[in-house]
Amino acid sequence: MALNLRVLRRKIRTVRHIQQITRAMNLVAAAKLSRAQQIVQAGRSYYERLRQVTEHVAAVGELDHPYLQAQQVNAVAVLVVGGDRGLCGGFNSSIWESAAEYIASQTVATRVMTVGSRMERLARRATVDLVRAWPGLSGPQDAGLAAEIASVVRGTYEQGEVEVVQAVYADFVSVVRHPVRNEQLLPIVRQGIAGEREAEYLFEPPAEQLLSWLLPRAVDAEIRRILLATHTAEQAARMMAMRAATDNAEDMIEDLTRQLNRARQEEITAELLDVVSGAQAVGEE
């Protein structure tokens, strides 16, 4: 009996220690999240508008540029963006699952590029053609990584190694919503060429020059946005996972404490019985 009590006490202590850690991680993630979230929100209208402008320009039918031409597809590159660390619930695995599903559905060669060491690890475990792996974003202000990734991605496309570049990442909609998205980075999707928009744009400088200046920037900006969104979503996922873990630990401590109390009661009762029956035995003599 006494052994049982000791075991229970030790269990409670262990759970409490773990809870301290998860609580600290929850707070750290919350702080990182609020910083990243501010940056995401500040840039939201810029990125949305840039996408619209690019769409408007791409919809002008007579214009042409390699970034707008859909070609016969012989190979596809997939940029899978995830996190560097775990303890964020199903965040990383759901991104990879979505990417793996897409890769499996391809009938042509697929080259995989990963961002975030978790993605690299998952890619190596799977049988995919991993051509490039970067670490994740070190912080929401990290602009260098996005620039490097963008130049590799565009280079791969420009040199004709692949005809389509797809990005799989977690978008950040709100703290509780970060859906995994799979979007085509290149070629830039042309919408509504069929004259639904009759905008006669003037271009300054002339169209061809403007396009070869604008389109690469649009791709760079989108990659920047994707990295930032995924980074922010990761913090949100971790914060929620750690909050859930802290709550679970609390429930567990309550449960164990109840067990402990019952065990203690039982022990006292047993001891009392011993004493009483012992006294009776003595009295009967």
């Binding site: 402008v53 408007h56 320009v57 905008a199 006669e200 744009y201 003037l202 271009f203 300054e204 400088p205 403007l210 200046w213 604008l214």
Partner: peptide, 16 residues
């Protein structure tokens, strides 16, 4: 290629 002004009802334009 230099500054330009935009007033209401300007023709649609995309400029670097």
């Amino acid at each position: 290629d230099g500054y330009f002004g935009v007033l209401a009802n300007h023709a649609p334009l995309v400029a670097e």
